[in-house]
Design a protein around this nucleic acid. Structure first.
Lengths: 168, 168
DNA sequence: TATTGTTATACTCTATAACTATA
DNA sequence: TATAGTTATAGAGTATAACAATA
């Protein structure tokens, strides 16, 4: 049940304490993400969708109605310029539609088109097979708990300046 | 034998079951990773290191001796061409050194230089402050358990073809 | 002939800044 | 004046293929 080292182990020759790569949280998250994405990448490739384009389509599916570009950027963890370019691509492929918000013409409201919904309907169930495979291999309850922990972790609101500590 | 799960909650208007974005494992991992990287990005920026360059330096620190480029690619989750280019950059900055393996001249062995080790020594302890902040906010034991679960998840060896299911 | 690493190429995303048009 | 989105630009990584050197 334990990870590699119970008490953090010996420090490497004269180096001040630096957490081993294997115990780095961002690295562990990356590794786990790569392992799970491995199941989905070929599927997205088949449908000529990048990971980020798929994130946009998923976010729109969840939204279940028009949302503006800024909201979309936030939900997909993409920067505004990335979203803008992705929206151009997805629009040219008729997967989404953009129109200005009548209430505030600065805003662009985005919706899935019927074609876009069809695409999601085609990819979604196949992608669900990936999740099921993970649930089976890892354990459904265990996976549920992991998701909850990841959710809580992402909610932590740590002040970055505490970390940099005015080192400047 | 349908893939759509029988007891997976209400299905959105006519759409076959598609897991909500919020319950997507890759998305949860990305979200958690973004939340944690938020603490480290400014630090890396201060030292003019990209995330990927820092991964290479960390992997070399852990290796505690020369390793070849292929091994480095594996440990950092980077593709060989990306590693190649990063090695060019890091070599020009004198942070690493490359030399052919005497035992097999095809292989390039990579080591940290003294300058490289110094850089790691400067960044490492500051980065450790980030980890500590997370440990405090999330709980040390809880974080340890999460790391162990992520480790196990990454170890899963799921056959991709099971997922694609010969759909072609 | 297979391998290791590097280049070549095209595409995409990241990141910051500048710009347009609304408000 | 501030905001929302887009466009501009520079840089970097992704991904595949092709290549050279070595085994």
């Amino acid at each position: 049940m334990t990870i590699d080292s119970p008490t953090a182990g010996p420090v490497v020759s004269g180096t001040p304490h630096i957490r081993p790569f294997s115990e780095s949280l961002p690295m562990a998250l990356l590794r786990a993400r790569e392992a799970s994405m491995r199941l989905f990448r070929p599927l997205l490739a088949q449908h000529e969708l990048t990971e980020q384009q798929w994130r946009v389509l998923r976010a729109l599916t969840d939204a279940n109605g028009p949302i503006d570009a800024g909201e979309l950027a936030g939900r997909t963890f993409l920067l505004a310029p990335s979203v803008s370019r992705i929206l151009v691509t997805l629009t040219s492929r008729k997967l989404i539609a953009r129109r200005p918000d009548p209430a505030d013409q600065r805003r662009t409201m985005i919706t899935l088109t019927d074609v876009g919904r069809q695409a999601v309907r085609r990819v979604g169930p196949q992608s669900e097979r990936g999740y099921c495979a993970i649930e089976v291999a890892f354990g459904e309850e265990r996976l549920g708990h992991l998701l909850a922990e990841l959710h809580d972790l992402a909610q932590l609101d740590i002040d970055v300046s505490d970390v940099l500590g005015g080192v400047q």
